[in-house]
Design a protein around this nucleic acid. Structure first.
Lengths: 228, 228
DNA sequence: AATACTATTAACCGTATGGTGAATACAAGG
DNA sequence: CCTTGTATTCACCATACGGTTAATAGTATT
């Protein structure tokens, strides 16, 4: 039979509820009482287990962050296919995108959660892209760091701005029909990029895509803080 | 000499301070006391002038919304040039982007501020794009509503996720150097799109770009509310 | 200069919230 | 079965915040 007392389990329940609450309302907007209620746990346990709301938030970010990292590691070589993989990786988890977005709004310039890992990701991806460009698989006149954020933008944006997506397309970004259409659309510039006119290699490939995009720390106590 | 009592002026001062505060912290995170302090005005005046925090927020959104709309109205015909104009329109005002982002996170599905105007914008733009496509100036196999949110994504994303932008490019999205690089980058797919291989017209043009992208109403009292 | 009106201020209130002190109940070890 | 440690609960605090009541001081009008 179930143990009536199991700290590990309550921890997990809290983390689950907190993820939902923080994704929905951000650090400042999330309510400890609500997290406890959702977790079916006494509010006090949050502080017993994690010390403070902010520490709990950091824990959530850190977990989600590493979880997502693995996903990104598995990108295929072909650029067009890689874009689709990134789309999958970047848009299959609404809560993650929302956490990213809260962070983007809340960060004041203080160190991000997992900043090193992120920097790592970007520099690895960058090196890979540079190699591909040197081999002529990406047009020489294309700015690679611009290409990077562009790819993230292409995949993350619809989830990050769902109302706008719905207004433009009539579909929710989570709707399977939307996702199919988006994938079809993304294939277009992908192939175009692959057909690299600069050097003329008809089919392109990137090295394998790894890495992640991430998280960050808290802001000024229980609010939001400026972002720049 | 200056009037010591001027309701119009205090209203403006409040609006100015509120814009900054709401852009920085969102509806839930913004503090009435702080707005008053920044405006150099007694807190009571916020409620005297606007009734409630939320009403003030709506006023801010509505103003910013129509202000931006005018900007978007003036897009040139040529697609490549239009993209640059949209970039300018979409990325020249950080506060606006942040308001959009707060909205995106906060909206629970309730009606957006200026939703009708936005729908208008999207349908007008959509019609224009369809005409251009019919004339063969945009590849026939390109999904136009996907194209629309893509263009917004390309221009808005760097400001919406500044930390990511900085990690990828080493520059802040507001940095003039970044903006130049981004413009140069955006010209690339712009010209590529213009060279419409589907029907073969070498130089493309869109009709004029109008419209706007926008705002929304409040959420559950002084918090954040779910977004989907 | 008295009147009437309204912009402005000071003080205050009720509530919600993050966080805590201390009691309590369960489980394992002896 | 009793003790010991810890997971869980209950009651509570201090504070911050949106909003309001009521008094006050400019200003225009006559």
């Amino acid at each position: 039979m179930e143990k009536t007392r199991d700290l590990g389990r309550t921890r997990e329940r809290i983390l689950g509820a907190a993820l939902r609450e923080f994704a929905a309302h951000g650090l400042g907007g999330a309510r400890c009482g609500e997290i406890a209620r959702r977790a079916g746990v006494n509010k006090r346990m949050l502080f017993y287990c994690f010390g403070s709301k902010e520490a709990l938030y950091r824990e959530i970010l850190s977990r989600k962050f590493t979880e997502r990292a693995n996903f990104f590691e598995a990108a295929p070589d072909d650029l067009a296919a890689a874009i689709l993989h990134w789309y999958e990786a970047g848009s299959s988890d609404l809560e993650w995108v929302r956490l990213l977005e809260w962070e983007a709004l809340g960060a004041a310039g203080d160190k991000l959660v997992g900043e090193d890992a992120r920097r790592d990701y970007f520099s690895r991806t960058s090196a890979r892209l540079r190699r591909a460009q040197a081999r002529g698989r990406i047009p020489r006149d294309l700015d690679l760091s611009q290409l990077q954020i562009t790819m993230i933008a292409l995949t993350v944006f619809p989830l990050a701005f769902p109302q706008m997506t719905r207004l433009a397309t009539g579909l929710a970004p989570t709707d399977p029909r939307f996702r199919r259409k988006r994938q079809r659309f993304l294939r277009w510039p992908g192939e175009r990029l692959s057909a690299a006119p600069a050097t003329g290699t008809p089919s392109a490939s990137l090295s394998k895509g790894e890495g992640t995009v991430g998280n960050r720390a808290p802001r000024r106590a229980a609010r939001g803080a400026v972002g720049g």
